[in-house]
Structure formats: C-alpha cells, structure tokens
Design a binder for these strands. Structure first.
Length: 648
RNA sequence: GCCGGUGUAGCUCAGUGGUAGAGUGCUUCCUUGGUAAGGAAGAGGUCACGAGUUCAAUUCUCGUCAUUGGCUCCA
C-alpha cells in the first residue's frame, strides 16, 4: 500500500500501482471525466500512469494551466495524425503547446499547403477526436526508436533522438499515429471537443535561420464548443483595440509608402497628445533633478567608432551620410548616449556635481529588419524619452530607486497595473563576455536587486540577459494581442564612460570614472503611445485626451452661444470643439460617444437663456444635469487634479 | 532578411477577362431639433506600381513596393 496526499491535505491509502485516474474515479465519475493529467510529486504525468510510491497528487483539469498545456500538446499529436492522413510521407519536426494553443512544425516536402487546407485538417481532427482514441505510452530502447524513424525517413526526429539518453525515450500512440514524445498526454482524444486551426507560418528548424524553413501550423482546442466561441470573440475584441486600428480611427498617426516603411507620421491630434505626454514627463523630470539637453540627429562617424556602435551595427544599419568633403562621414544617430557623453565632457566635473542627469526627447533611427516592423511598437525612426545619469558607483542604487519611482508614477497615473519588471544579470557561465570589473558588476547587480525589492516590484530575474556593458531593469507590458513589449528601461553602463574616458575629480583630488545609467521610462514615445492606446482602448484619461469636451448645439440658432462657450472653456485650459453640423443632437451625441470624448455639452434654448451648460458624460453616467460654465470648468479641473495626484 | 496572406472611393469592405459597386464620411439642399443614426441630391477611384499573356487585364502570370500573421533579430 502507498499513501497519496491530496491538495487539501487529506491522505488516501491505495494499492501500489494505482493511477491518478483510478483515484479520480474513486472520488467521482464526473471528476474522472474531466481529468486531463496529474501532478505527482510536482511532476506532470499521464493520469493513467501507475503510482508506485508515497506521493502528493493533484488531479489536473482544464482549469489548471498544466491541464490546458497537456491537452494542447495532445492536440498537436492529433493534428499531426490528420496531416499524415492527407499528406503521407511528410516529415514532422516538433509540436509543443504554447501560451494559447499549440503548433506543429512540419516539413511538407513537395506538397504545398495553404490556409484553405486548414479546414479539411480541422474536420479530420474532429473526426479522429470522436473516436476517443487512447494515448498509449510506450518506453522504447534508443536503437528501436532510431530504427522506427529511419523507417519513416524523418531527419528531424532522428536529430532529436541524438540528444536523448537510452532508457529515457518514450513513444505515444493514438489511433494510427505514433510520435516520439516525453508526454504527458490526455487519456483519450474524445476530450477534445472544439478545434480551430488559426494560422500557418514559416519557422526555422530549431529556431535558426540557417536551417531549413518548415511550415508551422497553429491551432487551439477546447473541451467545450462554447469556450471556443468565447475565445474567438475575445480575439475579435482584442483586434478592436489594436493601436493600428485605433490610431487611424482617432487620427493620431499614419504611414506613407513614399516616406518609407517604419517611419511614422504623427497627425495633429497625435502630435498634440504626444506633446502632452512629453510635458507630463518633463515636469516630473524637472522635479527629479534632470536637466534638459538637445542634440543633433546626426553625428560624425568618429563618434560611433568611439562608442563602439559602428563596429557592432554599422553594416546592418543605415549607412553613413557622405558630404562634398572626401572622407567625411556622418551617421544618423541610433542612440543619444554618445552625444550626452560629449556633453558630460564639455567641462571638468567634480564629485560635488554628481549625479548629473541629462534628459532629451531624442529621435533615433535604427534599421530594423523589414519583417519586424509593427505599427508604432517597432519602427525605424522613433523618439526616446532618454536620459543619462552620470554618478558614482555608490550612487547607483539610489538613482535606480529614483528612476523606479518615476516609472511607477507614470504607470500609476496611466493605470498600468499589469506589468512585470525583468532584472537582467550576467550569464554566470560566460563571465568574459562582459566589460567592467567584477567588483563593480557585483555592486551594480546587487543595487538593482535591492532597489527593486525595496520598491516591491513584481520582478523576474533573467541570467545572461544583461547587455555586455552592464545589468539592467526592464518594465514589460502586454499588448492587446498578448504580445509582450518592453517599455521603460534602466541600464547600467560601464562601457561608454570607459570609451569616452569620462572623468570627475573626487574628494581625494584624483580622477575617477563615473558610472553611466541609461533610462527611458516610456521606452519610446511611439511604443508607449501604442501600448497606452491598446491599454485604454483609446479612452484616454481626461488630462491627456485630444478633445475633452464636445459642444453640441441643438440647432444653428445656438451656434454663436456655443462658440462663446468654447472661448470661455479655452480660458480654463479645457480643450474641445463645437459640432455645428446640421444634424440632430442624437446623432452628434452618438458620434461624440464613438469618438470617446469624455464630456458633451448640449446647448439649446434653456442654456443660452440662462448662461448654463447641460452636461453629458461619456459612457454609463450619461446626462448629469445643468450647471454654470464655471461649475463645469471646476468639475473638469478637479477630475484632472485627481488623475494626476498619484502617490507612488 | 525568410515563409504565407493582403493591397478596389477619405474609412470599412463587396465584385468582375469586356475600363467598377455598397455602407459610412464629404459637399449642397430640405428640415430647426433636447441626450446614441431625420430626408434628398451630388462629387469622389490610373482597382498599389511595373512588365508579360490576351483582340481585351482591376481580374490570369511574374517582378517591385507597402501592409499583415509568423520565424529570425532587437543597441
């Protein structure tokens, strides 16, 4: 007999060799039907696997992350079976579960496959799922496994087998299909009730662009048809808040084929919005002891040779700009740091001056791969809310804390709640990759970790993700479609102070090298606006939004009064416009609502006679009654004050 | 950069081997109204660009550019 401890702490005594599924059946048939896999002593395994020792057991269902993954992994096998049915002889590479579903990478040999073929594969999968074929696990000696895939002439599986140890190799079979697989899998295919193959794409074997490109088919499955419907609806909702769509609808930015790809054009409303964001940050930075600087968009090639950027990126980026003078070359600036280093060097610095903080909304140009460009989140010309802090090693931690405060102030003001902070440290296995002394690195890494902990950031630590020149702290948020983007960043740099021979005079009257910290709380104006757009679905906070108020005269008799009102509101720094089109007020309201304008002022006979405004708030509040212009201005002013009065 | 999809009116999209349509927006007129769409008329397109096939190409083929889903990359 063995003892099985369940998550609630209760202990069941069962015969040695009892499976998780047996135990589930002992609890209830209904539960057993929902079990997809089991977690035994922390390892996810087949629910049917005999348990041979005392163990903790968690039954995994669709509600568990590991349960979902298991089902999607099994779904990949099911899809492979359907693919082999239509395209016998194709070579299968790998088919794992991912965040939302699964994929299988397939070498289709001489077959061509298009999106239209997905439907028939989907149909076949449904058919196979209905057969409730069991997933049967079999341990296989390595020689036998190699023999099997030699028979199938599958070079990918054979390559995978090379890295596996004899004795640890398992096959899984369901229906007519057998695959090399560690498992675990769901009990049988019948659990898969709803199937959607979502897209088809190219993917390199083992993620290396030197390798052959395979065809990757993405899909997702559910245990209930209604969940698939729900999922598809959510995808549609996410698309509705895609910043590229909203940016067009709200007239914020555009792109032109003639100007060039990845080069955004900010429209008047977008430019005004961006300016408000910049002023918001400038104000906070001024309070934080930053000095604003301005530097040109190009720099002599020598500058980037000195910084090392030319050696690293010269060939793969925008090429030098030539002048009538032979041998003279300039580069579009890919970053602001070298310019700021030269500003630091423009005069001798004393330890009493440190930290020095130079801030600039600096536009930079980077030749991103064409396939990587994406709306405003990945572009070739963009403006960083950049600043460089030059300080002593001992000041690093304190400066980090201050920058974290700044980032948190921005996130809180704009209601970003779901972010994570990634601490990127050295790769302990490759210490020679990094520039700067070990001692300084240790100090800086410790400073970042401590600063993050003291600020109670939700962090993940990634080893080996640090830049060669220093450790960093990045703030990551997800976009509407679940893609993760880096916004704010704080990076320590030991490289540039060295290369530019930056110095300050210490209290000992000796020359010392300052530490440089790069930081950009927004990341870039472009990416930040994109993520912000998706985050609030275009419904910006009152202080930031384009038009705070729409003045809607009921008929053209009240246009004059409406114009006067607009003047009056402008004096209160309230932005808006008069919709004096010859339309009914119902239509004007509808359009203002759709354009996400926070306040509407309905102006008719009563308002004009009494010098008042009838206020309607966007959304559920609706009509909030009549008041004087002063009261309305006060209302707006107070609302903005609350939005901006955020304590970190 | 690589593999697929897409490119038709300002916007969202139908459609066709015989030089084009809807909705919405825009202009004008009627209507002068009270909290999510009043009515009518009109203007607006080198069907992304270039080449080829054809009597004839927006439609078929190829190329280029842009865009899009992935992969790779990301200072």
């Amino acid at each position: 007999m063995i003892e099985i401890t369940l998550p609630d702490g209760s202990v069941k005594e069962v015969e040695n060799g009892t499976s998780a599924m047996d135990i589930a059946k002992g609890i209830s048939e209904g539960l057993a039907r929902n079990v997809l896999a089991a977690k035994v002593n922390g390892n996810v395994v087949d629910a049917g696997l005999p348990i041979t020792e005392n163990a903790t057991l968690q039954l995994l269902t669709w509600n568990d992350k590991d349960g979902k993954s298991t089902m999607w992994h099994s779904s990949a096998h099911l899809m492979a079976e359907a693919i082999e049915f239509f395209y016998p002889g194709v070579k299968l590479a790998i088919g794992p579960p991912v965040k939302n579903g699964f994929y299988y990478d397939v070498d289709f040999m001489d077959y061509t496959i298009t999106e239209k073929d997905l439907e028939k594969i989907e149909q076949k999968m449904k058919e196979l799922a209905k057969q409730k074929n069991e997933f049967i696990r079999k341990e296989v000696p390595k020689a036998e496994a190699i023999e099997y895939f030699k028979g199938k002439e599958d070079p990918y599986k054979l390559e995978l087998l090379e890295d596996l140890e004899d004795g640890s190799i398992t096959f899984y079979t369901q229906g007519e299909f057998t695959d090399l697989c560690r498992g675990p899998h769901i009990p049988h295919t019948g659990v898969i009730k709803a199937i959607k193959l979502t897209s088809i794409a190219g993917a390199y074997w083992r993620g290396d662009e030197k390798n052959k490109q395979l065809t990757r088919i993405y899909g997702i499955t559910f245990p209930k048809a209604s969940e698939l419907t729900q999922y598809l609806e959510n995808v549609e909702l996410a698309k509705a808040r895609d910043h590229r769509k909203l940016g067009k609808e709200l007239d914020l930015f555009t792109f032109s084929q003639k100007v060039g790809q990845g080069l955004p054009l900010w429209l008047p409303k977008g430019a005004a919005l961006r300016e408000r964001l910049e002023n918001f940050l400038k104000k906070a930075q001024k309070a934080g002891g930053y000095d604003q600087v301005i530097t040109p968009h190009i720099g002599s090639k020598e500058l980037y040779v000195c910084s090392g950027h030319y050696a690293k990126y010269g060939e793969d980026s925008f090429q030098p700009i030539l002048t009538p003078d032979e041998g003279e070359e300039f580069l579009l600036k890919p970053m602001n740091c070298p310019h700021h280093c030269e500003i630091f060097k423009s005069r001798p610095r004393s330890y009493r001056d440190l930290p020095v903080r130079f801030a600039e909304f600096g536009t930079v140009y980077r030749y991103e791969q064409s396939g990587e460009l994406h709306g405003l989140t990945r572009v070739r010309g963009f403006t960083q809310d950049d600043a460089h802090i030059f300080c002593t090693q001992d000041q690093v931690k304190d400066e980090f804390k201050k920058v974290i405060d700044l980032v948190l102030y921005i996130f809180k003001t704009l209601d970003f709640q779901n972010f994570k902070a990634q601490i990127s440290l050295r790769d302990p296995n490759d210490p020679d990759k990094y520039i700067g002394s070990n001692e300084n690195w240790d100090k800086a890494e410790q400073a970042i970790i401590e600063a993050s902990a003291e600020k109670e950031l939700p962090t993940v630590v990634e080893y080996g993700e640090a830049a060669f020149y220093g450790p960093k702290l990045d703030f990551m948020v997800e976009d509407a479609l679940g893609r993760e983007w880096q916004l704010g960043t704080i990076q320590v740099d030991y490289n540039l102070p060295e290369r530019f021979e930056l110095e300050y005079t210490g209290s000992d009257n000796q020359k010392h090298r300052p530490v440089m910290i790069h930081r950009a709380p927004f990341g870039s104006m472009e990416r930040f606006v994109a993520v912000l757009l998706e985050h609030c679905a275009g419904d910006f906070p009152l202080w930031l939004t384009t038009d705070q108020v729409a003045i809607l005269p009921i008929s053209d008799k009240y246009n004059d009064y409406s114009q006067k009102l607009l003047q009056l509101l402008n004096n209160y720094d309230i932005r808006g416009f008069v919709d004096d089109r010859n339309e009914k007020v119902g239509k004007k309201i509808r359009e203002s609502e759709l354009n996400k304008i926070p306040f509407m002022l309905i102006i008719g006979e009563q308002e004009a006679a009494n010098n008042t405004v009838s206020v309607r708030q966007r959304g559920e509040n609706g009509d909030i009654g009549s008041m004087s212009v002063e009261s309305f201005a006060d209302l707006v002013g107070k609302a903005i004050e609350i939005e901006l009065a955020v304590n970190v």
